[in-house]
Amino acid sequence: MTDDAPIECLLNLASKSGQWLRDAGITTIAELERRGAVVAYRLVKQRHPTASLNLLWALAAGLKGKDWRELTEATKNRLRKEAEE
């Protein structure tokens, strides 16, 4: 996969999540990598308050090429705290 692959190519993302990221100005995986999962989640959450923490898990795991269900509770807790700051 190339750096400029469309955001929808990220593992774990459904079409709705991909559109939310596009609405937030994140259109490629490279852009997501530059901003990071937490910042991207915050940007989406500002525009789409119904976005759940599952999106954060999906972004963080997708950037590592993993299924979101593989994240440990410790990782989820760290991400949750970062997103709330």
Rank of each mutant, 00 (worst) to 15 (best):
M1L: 15
D3F: 13
A5T: 04
A5P: 08
A5R: 07
P6L: 14
P6D: 15
E8V: 08
E8M: 08
E8H: 08
C9V: 14
C9L: 14
L10N: 04
L10K: 00
L10Q: 00
L13R: 01
A14C: 13
S15W: 12
S15T: 06
K16D: 06
G18L: 04
G18H: 03
G18C: 01
Q19P: 01
W20P: 04
L21D: 00
L21I: 03
A24D: 02
G25T: 05
G25P: 01
I26W: 01
T28A: 05
I29C: 01
E31S: 06
E31I: 02
L32N: 02
E33A: 06
R34H: 01
R34L: 08
R35A: 09
R35F: 09
G36V: 00
A37T: 00
V39M: 09
V39N: 04
V39E: 06
A40Y: 03
Y41H: 08
R42D: 06
R42T: 09
L43M: 15
L43I: 09
V44G: 02
K45R: 14
Q46H: 13
R47G: 11
H48L: 08
H48I: 07
H48K: 15
P49S: 14
T50G: 13
S52E: 15
L53R: 14
N54I: 10
L55I: 10
L55Q: 01
L55P: 01
L55Y: 07
L55W: 07
L56Q: 07
W57R: 07
A58M: 10
A61V: 09
G62C: 07
L63A: 11
K64I: 12
G65F: 14
G65Y: 11
G65M: 14
K66D: 11
D67R: 10
W68I: 02
W68N: 06
R69A: 14
L71K: 04
L71T: 03
T75Y: 04
T75C: 08
T75M: 03
K76R: 15
K76M: 15
N77I: 09
N77S: 15
R78G: 03
R78I: 07
L79E: 00
L79Q: 00
R80G: 01
R80V: 00
K81H: 07
K81N: 03
E82K: 11
E82W: 07
E84I: 08
E84A: 13
E85F: 05
